[in-house]
Structures are given as C-alpha cells and as structure tokens.
Amino acid sequence: MKTVKIGGVPEHFNLAWYLTLKNGEYKDEGINLRWKDYFGGTGQMCTALRDGEIDLAVILTEGIVKDIIDGNPSTIVQTFVASPLIWGIHVAEHSNYKTVEDLKGTKAAISRYGSGSHLMAYINAQNNNWDLDKDLNFEVIKNLDGAVEGLTNEKADYFMWEKFTTKPLVDDGTFRRVANCPSPWPCFVIAVRTEFLENNKEDVQTILNIINNTTKEFKDIPSIDKSIANRYDQKLEDVQEWLSLTEWSQDVMDEKTVANVQEKLFDLDIISEKWEYNKLITKL
C-alpha cells in the first residue's frame, strides 16, 4: 500500500478529509493517506513541503503562490475552496483599539513570515491606504494559542485569522473583532511536491477524485451543521452562516485568477516577479 502524507489546518474547511479517511476510502484504492494537522498554518506547511515532511498540502492560495516563486519545489493541482476566506481582525477584549484605523502603525501578530496572517496584513493595510513601510509591524506568535497570549499580554496589538475559527474566542471575551477582511481570491488550494507528483500522478489523481466526490455533496450530508458545531466547538448558527458562505471546488484555478493573485502580491512587494501560469499550476 502506498503511503502518502498530507497536511492541513485543523479547521472545519477540512472536515471532508477527515470523513473520507474515517470511511477508509483511500485504503480501498491502495493508498495509506496520512493526515497531519498544522496549527501554525500556511507558513509551517510551506516548510513541511520544502523539507519533504508532507507530499501534499491543503493550503492558502496566497501563501503557496509566494513560496513557490520563492523556491518551494511544489505545484498547485486544484482549488479546494472557491470562496474567499473571511479574515477577522481581532484585538484583545481589554484593548483600547476600536476600529481598523486605530490599528494603523501598531503591531500585528502573525503565525510566521509568509503565512496567511502575515500576507493578509498587507492586504488589509492596502485596503485602508496605509503606508506599507511605516504602518506595518509584526510579532511572530506561531499559532492561535500564541495569538491569545500575545494580544492578552500586549506583545502585539491585533491578529488576523479566519473569523469562524476565532468566533469562540470572541464569544468568551478573549478577543474582540473590530472588522472583517475577505481574501480577494479563492482561499484554499491543494499543492503537491513536484517530485512526488512526477512519480505518483495516478495516486494524486485518485486522492483528488475521492475528496472531490465528498466536497461536491458536502452540504447535503445529513446534520453536517451539527457535526461541525460539535467537532469544532462552534455555535450552530455560526456554522450555518459559514456553510452558506463557503463553496468547495473540484477544478483547477484558471489563468485569470492566478494572474490576479500575483498582481496583488507583486503590487504589495510580497513577490519580486510574476510567473507564467504553467509554472505555478499543473493540470492533471
């Protein structure tokens, strides 16, 4: 049986992977798919792909595009979630900051450089016409637990993370959300180490076929909202709102979208050059 290692964030977006693993669908096809949770998010997964710790990653679009251009020997084979990610902009409950404008020039907590929380801080700054050199400062906090500590102890002033994941921390009075910042593109893609793909193309295609069959009908799974609420400690109404906003994809990202991602990252000086479509995307 072929062992394949895959990584992703331990969030509700990836429940379809858990369900297909639990059902033994990959093993039925001769694939021992081993899932690993990455609490540090996209930056941590980029490192894992580079080091060969995992073969595939379910990863934020902007983070993997930047890292491939920076030398990560991987390629994007499919969009996983077609809808934008809604990033909540959070401060500590006791913070004096009330609006996004109050945060201009303060310190953003980020999981690591090159992560979604880092790159989206630039998107938020541009949206609000901040000076990208003067008005952005960063404190690396590794993960969500680190953000709680960092904001509570005033090591950093605000933190951007997926709004539904952090909603329980808003509800219990740890964080206060001052605004939302949707990503300007489909949020999650599936990336594969290029060397692994070259040698295991049929296995990768089989994995995609299995997960796509589940995501196509994910919202129709009986009581899926209750399952998500229980598993991820979410309020049922929050899960129902999230499901209404989220669309999974079974397709390859098109050239226009890839160009848009690169244009935005280039304008923000996050990438130093723009690449041709087929150097970032592989159609199976």
Rank of each mutant, 00 (worst) to 15 (best):
V9N: 14
V9Y: 13
E11N: 12
E11A: 15
L15T: 08
T20R: 03
Y26S: 01
Y26P: 03
E29H: 02
G30H: 10
I31A: 01
L33Y: 05
D37V: 06
G40N: 10
G41V: 05
T42Q: 10
G43E: 01
T47R: 11
R50A: 13
G52A: 01
G52P: 02
E53C: 01
D55Q: 11
L56S: 03
L56R: 04
E62K: 05
G63M: 09
V65C: 13
V77P: 03
T79N: 07
V81K: 02
S83R: 12
L85P: 08
L85G: 14
V91T: 02
T99W: 09
G105Q: 02
A109S: 06
A109V: 03
S115T: 07
G116I: 10
L119G: 07
A121D: 05
I123R: 01
N124L: 11
A125V: 12
N127G: 03
N129L: 14
D131W: 09
I141H: 00
K142R: 11
L151V: 01
N153Q: 13
W161V: 10
T165G: 07
T166G: 00
P168H: 09
F175N: 04
R176W: 06
C187M: 14
C187F: 12
E195H: 10
E198Y: 08
E202I: 13
L208P: 10
F218P: 00
K219Q: 14
D220Y: 11
S223I: 14
D225F: 04
A229N: 10
Q234H: 15
V239R: 07
V239L: 01
Q240A: 00
E241K: 12
S244W: 02
L245D: 10
W248N: 06
S249V: 12
D251T: 10
T257E: 15
N260Y: 09
D269S: 10
D269K: 12
D269N: 12
I271K: 05
I271E: 00
K279L: 03
K279G: 05
L280T: 04
L280Y: 02
T282P: 05
K283H: 08
L284R: 05
